[in-house]
């Protein structure tokens, strides 16, 4: 297998229609994202059917732009990669069928990529991996600690037992009547507030790397509700700061413990919540004097994009792990 292969990657698992061309797993030749955030705003969250409809409208446009910006002809591609899952099934199906159609039409191999593998590999577009590697994956749908001993091998050592961190952010944002998407708003507000409310930290069993955020979410809602009944008010900035402190404490605490227990050489933060400034600052502080190098991708690579899918696909290409034309989209699938 050649090592400077050109992969066109497609990502449509949620509300971004994206295509990218990645060279040799590490060089971004193009990275196109058509965001639908404006269409979903008025509904206060992503509407799956609307997302799917937008994907059909955008799919050939983003593919064409990715090829053009990469400055290549589609015949020069070595493989077509696509997010197979997990995600919104109707949304995934658009990308999967487009990828199959393209691979068949130009006679190139097809590669199915796990969305979370993509988020992790986004970091390899910045810096080469060193194993063992620990990844903290935090997004609207995921909160996981993943241990990697070599390329393409993923061991989930901890995961959320209820809500994902990003979900908790969205729900608390709604309670504070912040507009969608709530996560970034809370992060911004938290920077202006004081940690004046003592919200619980769900550490679970001492040896566990699992997470739980539903208790925290309920605590925030109850605190605000009780205060309202007593005619008291909390400054939204203080609520945001206190809530964020609780989330960040647990995420950072479990990450550092796992990094030390497994002797991680690198600790990677992946997923949309990796853009959170509170989380970044706290991780940077804690890992400053530790053995493991901390890697957090730039903002554009944290949120959903196709470059990360192409980066993860490169490993599967080298391992010749190709999919056939009966590949299907999967709403949930193991990493």
């Amino acid at each position: 297998m050649k090592t400077s292969e050109l992969i066109l990657a497609i990502e449509t698992s949620c509300d971004e229609t994206a295509a990218a061309v990645i060279e040799g797993g590490r060089i971004i030749r193009s990275n196109i994202v058509a965001s639908q955030i404006e269409s979903h705003k008025r509904f206060g969250g992503v509407v799956p059917e609307i997302a799917s409809r937008h994907h059909v409208e955008q799919i050939t446009l983003v593919i064409e732009e990715a090829i053009q910006q990469a400055g290549i002809q589609k015949e020069e591609l070595d493989a077509i990669a696509v997010t197979q899952g997990p995600g919104l099934i109707g949304a995934l199906l658009v990308g999967v069928n487009a990828a199959k159609a393209l691979a068949f039409s130009i006679g190139k191999p097809l590669i199915g990529v796990h969305h979370i593998a993509g988020h992790i590999y986004a970091n390899r577009l910045e810096q080469e991996f060193k194993f063992p590697l620990l990844a903290l994956v935090v997004s609207g749908g995921h909160t996981e600690l993943v241990l990697m001993k070599e390329h393409g091998s993923f061991e989930v050592i901890g995961e959320t037992r209820d809500d994902a961190a990003g979900e908790a952010y969205d729900k608390v944002a709604r309670t504070l009547q912040l507009p969608y998407p709530g996560g970034p708003r809370i992060d911004k507000l938290a920077a202006e507030g004081e940690q004046s409310i003592d919200f619980p930290r769900a550490w679970l069993e001492p040896e566990s790397y699992d997470f739980s955020f539903s208790g925290l979410k309920s605590a925030v809602i109850n605190t605000l509700h009780n205060a309202k009944q007593k005619g008291e008010t909390f400054a939204p900035a203080d609520v945001a700061a206190s809530f964020q402190a609780s989330v960040v404490d647990v995420l950072v605490g479990k990450t550092i413990r796992a990094a030390e227990a497994f002797g991680a050489k690198q600790v990677i933060v992946a997923g949309g919540v990796a853009a959170n400034r509170g989380l970044r600052a706290s991780l940077e502080e804690v890992f400053a004097d530790k053995q493991a190098d901390l890697l957090i991708p730039p903002l554009a690579l944290c949120t959903d994009n196709a470059a990360m899918i192409g980066a993860a696909a490169s490993i599967l290409y080298q391992q010749e792990k190709f999919a056939d034309l009966s590949m299907n989209a999967k709403a949930s699938m193991p990493l």
Binding site: N97, A99, A101
Partner: peptide
């Protein structure tokens, strides 16, 4: 539709 559009574009 996704299949037809993409095939037509590719070809």
């Amino acid at each position: 539709m996704a299949t037809a559009k993409t095939m037509a574009w590719a070809l």
